[in-house]
Design a binder for these strands. Structure first.
Lengths: 160, 160
DNA sequence: ATAATATATGTAGTTAGCTACATATATTTG
DNA sequence: CAAATATATGTAGCTAACTACATATATTAT
């Protein structure tokens, strides 16, 4: 059971480890879409999937929904608009708001993607269905952090 | 129990979720170092910690050890050299190699960091010690992926 | 009905990794 | 031992998120 120094450092490197795993999964995700002949970038998923489920949303509410800072969402929307997967219109009641929705082309894309999602879900289930389930662990950790942040928890030990 | 669309999409968004969590932990990590008055960036951790444990290493072996592409390591080393935490010298046997090691200043920094690590370890343990342990889950998933990649697993379902 | 504040969107620039390519030196092979 | 290949390092530019700041419109408080 060989272990490198970073693995051995365990908790200290948790952020690095999470990022590495995220990248690896994202890259494989891209290859899976390609294998289905779908021209789709995994980073588009949160925006498109949310619009698929909720139809029309403003930029900020979409950002909140997917948990991104709004400028991140704006730049994704710009790409998606260029690809003609989404369109936007002004909110007539609150003119500050830009309402975003899928186009026909976007809706079509999303429906061709449904079988891919099934494959992704199965493959992910296979991978995460270990003794400690990754998705459940993420959910649990996120809810611990929501209750009391990492920093707040550390502060308790600092004061001692 | 309110849930946003992305959370509800579960496995599909796993890469996004991992990244978000990683960022959150990294940011809090930075704040903890600050709370101790240590001028240290979490991204330096893998390189410095590895050099602390293994003393002298070449660029590539260091990259392999921490699991980074070598250009990433090089750019970290550049910063760390500027901060005078590390220095490098030519390998006399294999002149292609650049051997990297901590300076006095680097070693001093690392030893002032040990108490911070203890705090980080405790706080992280608190957070990850849920029903499904995040660190264990990451280890398990990484070893599943080493055995058979995400794409290879998906291919099985595609062929059906 | 102003003035002050809050919210929505947008732009610019940063970050922490990456891949692709280039070059120098070692090692292996015919 | 020369040619081919492999390894070590380095540079340039990409990516997918971010923060900080700016502006326009709504809402709230006096």
């Amino acid at each position: 059971m060989e272990q490198n120094v970073i693995d051995a450092s365990g908790l200290l490197a948790i952020s690095t480890r999470l990022q590495r795993l995220s990248d690896q999964i994202r890259k494989d995700g891209l290859l899976i879409y390609k294998a289905f002949g779908i021209d789709f970038q995994p980073k588009w998923f949160p925006v498109l999937y949310t619009l698929y489920k909720k139809s029309t949303m403003s930029v900020v509410s979409l950002s909140d929904e997917i948990g991104y800072a709004h400028p991140s969402t704006i730049s994704l929307l710009k790409e998606l608009e260029k690809e003609k997967f989404i369109r936007s219109k002004k909110d007539k009641v609150d003119t500050r708001k830009r309402l975003v929705e899928l186009t026909e082309k976007g809706t079509t894309l999303l429906s061709t993607m449904e079988p891919v999602w099934e494959v992704i879900i199965k493959a992910t289930a296979e991978i995460t269905n270990t003794e400690n389930n990754l998705m459940k662990a993420i959910n649990e950790v996120e809810s611990s952090l929501k209750e009391k942040s990492f920093l707040q928890r550390a502060e308790v030990y600092i004061k001692k």
